[in-house]
Amino acid sequence: MNVLVVAAHPDDEVLGPGGTVLRHAKAGDDVSVLIACTGTNLRYGSEETAELLDAAREVGELLSVRLVLGELPDQALDTLALPTVVEVVEREIAAAGAEVVYVHHWGDINRDHRILCEATVVATRPYAAPGVRAVRCFETPSSTEWGPPGQAPFVPNLFVDVADVLDAKIDAFGRYRSEVRPAPHPRSLDALADRARYWGSVSGLTAAEPFAVMRDRW
């Protein structure tokens, strides 16, 4: 199976679907990860940005994925025409021969996440990407759950068992040293593990990652 993860920022690919990526890799699937917003960075200076990208490469090796660093601007996707973002996603869908695509949830508080989700929806239309048979949206801790009242809630309907790879996911996220926060922040190592155990309790598993399925065709 050919899998593509479409993530906005370095660390998103671990926070949301990291355990699922590890499971795909262990199963022998070909996994590609697009981290789209690694161009102009409005949050960090050049030194911090370089450290983030180095961490992304290190994590890519830990996850056993083909890593693609995009050049779209961080925290500024709303300054671009949507077709510009769609083109980047379409290019990676084609390069990966993607059959399953994972992307941010459409209700996230982070605008880059929402725009990237919308662009992926456009790029994976059945006539535009007939090889894509599943599109699954992941949550991003401290972004998905912090949206304002009335914004589209994250209601997962697919749960992936990540008990056997949870420690490896936590270790991978820990490589993003500048992004790890102290507990009880959602991006602390303890909270990330607790979150997986919570979703496991919801779905009858020890630990799980949740997804909202946008389309699944078999």
Rank of each mutant, 00 (worst) to 15 (best):
H24Y: 14
A208W: 02
D171F: 09
A50K: 03
S46M: 14
G97F: 06
R195E: 13
P153T: 11
V213D: 02
Y176G: 13
F211Y: 08
A207H: 00
L69Q: 04
T40H: 12
R197Y: 09
Y176H: 14
A207Q: 00
Y102E: 02
A55L: 08
D11Q: 06
P141K: 07
Y44H: 07
R91A: 15
V86Y: 04
L53V: 06
G107N: 05
L77D: 01
G39A: 05
A172K: 15
G45A: 10
S64N: 14
R136V: 01
V86S: 03
T124A: 14
D161L: 14
L15C: 03
L22W: 14
A36K: 05
G97V: 12
A27D: 07
S64K: 15
A134V: 03
E13K: 15
H105V: 08
V132C: 05
N41K: 06
Q75K: 10
R66Y: 07
A8C: 11
A98T: 11
G45P: 02
P153Q: 09
A212G: 04
A134N: 00
A183G: 05
S143H: 07
R187G: 10
P156D: 01
E118A: 12
V14K: 14
D74S: 10
L63D: 02
D161R: 10
P83D: 01
Y176T: 11
F159N: 02
M214V: 05
V3G: 03
A96Y: 09
P182R: 11
V165M: 06
T206N: 06
R177E: 13
T49L: 09
I115F: 00
L166I: 07
R177L: 12
L82I: 07
V132S: 06
P73A: 00
H104W: 08
V6L: 08
A123P: 01
L77T: 00
G18D: 11
N41L: 15
R181M: 14
P153R: 09
A196T: 02
S143R: 10
E118T: 12
E139Y: 04
S203M: 07
